Amino acid sequence: MRNKEELLKKVKALAERGSGGEKESAEKLLSQLMEKYGITEESISEDTVECEWFRYKDNLQRRLLKQIIYMVTGNVDTYKRKGGRHKLVGAYCTTYQRIEIEANYEFFKNAMEKEIETFFSAFCSKNRIFPPEEMQREDINDGISELEALKIMMMMEGMERHAIKKMLEGGSKNAV
């Protein structure tokens, strides 16, 4: 049983057996959690497994979602719903596992987006994807902290530099 499952069951028990303000607070918290995660009182005491569907936007998010499903359920089997405008991955899980998958997915999706921004900066810097010096704006790096700059520099160290050969007038080739 997962921590969230235990928490919901404990809050439910406190709402049923508590006294005074403790009972009222537990009932309010239980109600908020049930509404937030779309669960019923019956499902709190059940451990039924159903196919649940989770939305994602792109291939990288799909991969993250599948990894989180594997982390929570221990199962690598997922299903892709075809058709419709939403991209969905399905997995068999309990109500609590669905809640845990959704919470972890939101958290790690946001964290991954921040890290991708750092990676992008490091990649552009490593590969010198900038305009000529006379065209560069000085305000482009405003707002970047020293810690973020250090993180970008360290990430660059582990990257390979890619070079492209350009065709110049007259047919000569120069590496950039």
Score class of each variant (00 low, 15 high):
R137V: 06
D142Y: 06
E42S: 13
D139T: 10
M71W: 08
G171S: 11
D77V: 13
Q97H: 00
M153S: 14
L88W: 12
N174V: 15
K36I: 02
A149Y: 07
Q32Y: 10
N110S: 11
M156Q: 14
K173C: 02
A15I: 01
L65G: 02
C51T: 15
A111L: 12
T95F: 02
N59T: 07
N104Y: 10
I39G: 05
K10I: 09
G158L: 01
V76I: 06
D47N: 09
S121W: 13
M159D: 04
Y105T: 07
Y79T: 04
V72A: 01
E100L: 09
L60A: 13
L14Y: 03
Y105E: 08
V176W: 06
D58W: 01
Q67C: 07
I44C: 04
A149W: 07
H86Q: 12
E50N: 09
S19D: 11
E50F: 07
R137I: 05
E133K: 10
S43K: 13
L8G: 03
K80D: 14
A122I: 00
S43L: 09
I101G: 02
R85W: 03
Y56S: 07
E35F: 13
F108N: 04
A91L: 01
D47S: 08
N104I: 01
K151F: 05
M159F: 03
I39V: 15
L8W: 06
E50H: 09
Y105F: 15
H86D: 14
E41A: 13
T73M: 00
M156H: 04
K12V: 07
K151V: 03
C51Q: 14
D77L: 08
E5R: 13
C124D: 08
N104A: 12
R128L: 11
S125C: 06
E134Y: 13
Q67D: 15
T95S: 05
K114A: 11
E42T: 12
M1D: 13
A163C: 06
S121A: 14
M167Q: 11
K23Y: 07
F123W: 15
S25L: 14
N3F: 10
Y56F: 15
Q61L: 03
K166R: 11
P131Y: 06
A175K: 09
I144H: 04
K109E: 14
E24V: 10
K57S: 05
A103H: 09
E100A: 08
S31T: 12
G20Q: 03
F108E: 07
T78A: 08
Y70W: 02
K87Q: 08
E134Q: 08
Y96F: 15
K109S: 14
R98D: 04
L8F: 15
M153K: 13
D47T: 06
M153T: 11
Y70T: 00
F108M: 06
E24L: 15
S172W: 10
G74I: 01
R81T: 10
A15V: 02
M71S: 08
M135D: 15
